[in-house]
């Protein structure tokens, strides 16, 4: 188990009334890197996580943690730490007591509660009622609970919600260091920008199924979004020359064309060789956000004729 803390999801289907929440969700989360779990609200991220934790029963398919169904794990929090809902707290119970009962449920000593409170920066607020916590503090407490059993795998649902910029930086570095120590880390978000610079792998979902399951560098490289914008007084000649060289060219204005399929250097060489004049050349690097929008465009269109989705 400790050697292979992967999270496997195989062919999950789940229907809530008229809504098909999961529609063949399949992926594997591997250790040693942060895996981003992205998709629009209602894509089935939270439901998938609830199925992994044995909280929701799928109509079809199965989910395994380290090769075992979650419900069969002896002290589950020592195998998979999770944060589903930072608001799942009894308001009048203190932060430390919240972690204390969780520790007792796993046969862990009270000192673990104090240790993780320090780790998430809540040591000072340990004796305060959790009901008085800001959303950011609750997220930290939820992450403390996930870390309580020092598990080899973590699964966090929207942990960036309610965090201030400092908090977002903190959680990114925490996730990176957890992954660097060989842990499996699955982090969901509906905003790709939150995962920028932290996720090494992405599982993009829409409409209850996986749209893309890919490494971040590969994703960026394959995108058509690597374009060059060219300003020229001879757009027709430029288009002909570049098309002959294998590029895809779109006219964008009277003196502007958009070129994809060739690097900036190759474009300059082709234009100079053909004697085509040009005034300005701007290369445009794709962001993860654009990649995500392009990937989920189909899912969103598909949603258009599929009715309402659960959030």
């Amino acid at each position: 188990m400790k050697d292979d803390p992967r999270i496997e999801v195989e062919g999950l289907r789940k229907r809530f009334g008229a809504t098909q929440a999961l529609n063949g969700m399949t992926f594997t989360v591997r250790p040693g890197r942060v895996t981003g779990f992205v998709g629009p609200n209602g894509a089935g991220k939270s439901t998938t996580m609830r199925v992994v934790l044995g909280l929701d029963a799928p109509d079809q398919g199965r989910a395994l943690v380290g090769g075992q169904p979650y419900r069969t794990l002896g002290s589950p929090l020592r195998h998979l730490g999770s944060l589903l809902d930072a608001g799942a707290l009894q308001p009048s119970r203190s932060a430390r007591n919240h972690l204390l009962w969780l520790a007792h449920s796993q046969g862990l000593p009270a000192s673990r509660a104090d240790r993780v409170l320090e780790q998430v920066g809540l040591a000072e607020a340990a004796r305060r009622r959790a009901g008085g916590f800001s959303l950011g503090m609750r997220q930290r407490l939820g992450i403390a609970a996930a870390l309580l059993g020092d598990p080899p795998a973590l699964m966090l649902d929207e942990p960036f919600n309610g965090l201030d910029p400092e908090g977002i930086l903190w959680i990114r570095s925490l996730l990176s260091s957890l992954a660097a120590h060989g842990r499996t880390v699955l982090v969901s978000s509906h905003l790709m920008s939150e995962l920028q610079d932290v996720a090494g792998h992405l599982i993009v979902v829409g409409r209850g199924r996986v749209v893309a399951d890919t490494g971040v560098p590969e994703l960026l490289a394959t995108l058509s979004a690597n374009r060059v914008t060219l300003r020229t007084s001879a757009p027709v000649a430029a288009t002909e020359a570049l098309a002959r060289a294998g590029a895809i060219v779109h006219a964008k204005g009277a003196d502007t064309v958009s070129v994809s399929g060739l690097t900036g250097e190759a474009i300059v060489t082709v234009l100079n060789a053909g004697g085509v004049p040009f005034a300005e050349l701007a290369t445009h690097r794709a962001t993860l956000e654009e990649a995500y929008l392009e990937l989920t465009r189909d899912a969103v269109q598909y949603r258009g004729d599929g009715g309402e989705e659960t959030a």
Partner: peptide
């Protein structure tokens, strides 16, 4: 009411 049952059952699936 608080959704705490999810945390409880994640900690003790039985």
């Amino acid at each position: 009411r608080r959704g705490l049952i999810g945390t409880t059952l994640a900690a003790a699936p039985g």
